[in-house]
């Protein structure tokens, strides 16, 4: 039989089916092999982000977590523990941005003060909205070989939230909407989205603070 010039419907179908099967088996085996490195890479990314917004911790915060809802936003609170005591809480949530959802990670002290806001996932306009979200140390040819500074890179918009704590019944708004948060011109939608995100998460933390601290504290620690 000449396979190359065949027009038999069933042979053609069978050929494609066999090829699809081979490819599926190959991919299944391969994805099984790399599943471990992928999980490790994801964990590394999460921990990298958490280390930037939390004080030094010795547990795995992404496993010590609590899911809560605020409006239609799902917020995950993660507790950072050191020496058996809860020392700070990170919260991650997502909010509608200009193009796609903006995902943020916010670090809180136990009294509700924001430590830092970090945007973990965004697809805003490069050069405009994206600049509002990015924290990056400036690299130049003059400091290319110097050691990178420790800690979190500055971002004048995101740094406005540092040290703020939510007040019941008072939402944070950008100046354009009559609030007190400075926005970046050309990136109002993104500024608004991040402000809303920070506000919802902070309000949620304020409203459920007792529950969050009780649930995330390791057994036996943090009695006050």
């Amino acid at each position: 039989m000449n396979l190359k010039n065949t027009e038999n419907f069933f042979v053609l179908g069978l050929f494609l089916a066999v090829l699809g099967l081979i490819s599926a088996v190959l991919l299944a085996v391969f994805s099984d092999i790399v599943s471990e490195p992928i999980a490790a890479a994801e964990l590394r990314t999460t921990n990298e982000a958490l280390r930037q917004i939390l004080p030094a911790f010795d547990n795995q915060p992404s496993e010590n977590k609590l899911m809560l809802r605020q409006g239609d936003m799902e917020i995950t609170f993660m507790g950072a523990v050191k020496d058996g005591k809860l020392i700070a809480v990170a919260a991650s949530g997502a909010c509608k941005g200009y193009a796609a959802p903006v995902q943020g990670l916010i670090g809180f002290d136990l009294d509700g003060k924001i430590r830092a806001v970090l945007i973990t996932k965004q697809n805003e306009t490069p050069g405009l909205g994206a600049n509002v979200c990015q924290r990056q140390f400036k690299k130049t040819i003059f400091n290319l070989f110097e050691k990178r500074p420790e800690g979190i890179a500055p971002n004048s918009f995101l740094d406005q939230f540092n040290g703020k704590s939510a007040v019941k019944g008072k939402n944070w708004k950008v100046r354009k909407d009559g609030g007190r948060i400075d926005y970046v011109s050309g990136a109002t939608v993104t500024s608004r989205a991040i402000t809303e995100l920070a506000d919802s998460v902070a309000q949620c933390f304020l409203a459920n603070r007792a529950e969050i601290i009780a649930k995330l504290s390791p057994a036996g620690g943090n009695e006050k």
Binding site: L3, K4, N5, T6, L12, F15, L16, L19, S23
Partner: peptide, 12 residues
């Protein structure tokens, strides 16, 4: 590869 289905085969 049968000529009639070569494009789907390549895509797979």
């Amino acid at each position: 590869v049968p000529k009639k289905v070569r494009i789907p085969v390549y895509i797979v």
